[in-house]
Design a protein around this nucleic acid. Structure first.
Lengths: 138, 138
DNA sequence: GTAATTGCTCTAGTCCCTAGAGGTTCAAGA
DNA sequence: TCTTGAACCTCTAGGGACTAGAGCAATTAC
């Protein structure tokens, strides 16, 4: 039986966040000891680890909820789980592509600074004027 | 003189968002016409364009506030503006690196699905077990 | 036995908007 | 000129995923 603090240390999820997950019904409420403190069993620990890992991979809490439900069902629906994972992969790839455009634009803008203060800062000018952009960043 | 709707169309910032920017003091409150509706001048338009562009580049509103203040000062502080832009570039690059690790991990997990339902779904297993991960994604 | 740590609940705040209610003003056509 | 429909106004609340803090109770270590 683990206290909430032990769970937090073991998984890397902060204590208030664990309580939050319980509040929104993502993590089942565990039993309590005589002093009304949460006491988790290994199943609870595994569930929290699953959530943490999926969060680290960028899944939304609603996705995780769906994945956990699949996990709970007998005859686990592999096709659906794979669909969610694949969609998340696409999502992440799209975000990467977009960020790469932004990085290119920022690098360009950043290099405009000549260190001097001769009137107008070209970094600021570039930020104000989208038409100076080389790529279509948005 | 532009109405708020004209500003929205010209810059791509939604009407409630423009009012929000005014609320938080990012965009100066414009004058009003006889019927209490906002009327913007070209300066206001330019300011909103600046905000939009900077937001598209991923700057936080607080950064934008700082940049606009620099822009307003005489003897515009190019060094400070460049510092903010460079820091934002680092930020974006770090996010890209992290997302690329996630994408690799997700691609690996996604390929575990063999389409069958032979007991346990390996996608779900992989999500639950961080130790299966190839790279240190977090 | 006492002090420090950990735990409890509850409320409110973060960021950046978005949605909706309920009302007023404007612009264009008949 | 009148009417209609779009655009505008203020205000409040919600969203996602937490985070922070107050004020108190329980546990743990010495």
């Amino acid at each position: 039986m683990y206290s909430i603090g032990a769970m937090s240390k073991a998984t890397g999820v902060k204590v208030p966040t664990i309580r939050y997950y319980e509040d929104i019904g993502l993590l089942r409420a565990p039993g309590r000891n005589a002093g009304n403190q949460r006491r988790y069993d290994p199943h609870g620990m595994q569930a929290l680890g699953f959530i943490k890992h999926a969060r680290d991979l960028g899944f939304a809490l609603d996705d995780i909820r769906a994945l956990m439900q699949l996990n709970g069902d007998l005859g686990t629906d592999c096709v659906e789980a794979d669909r969610i994972a694949a969609s998340q992969l696409l999502n992440v790839q799209a975000r990467i592509a977009r960020l790469q455009q932004l990085a290119a634009e920022l690098a360009r803008i950043s290099h405009l600074c000549d260190g001097g203060n001769g009137g107008q800062c070209r970094v600021l000018t570039a930020l104000g004027d989208h038409s100076q952009c080389t790529g279509a960043h948005d």
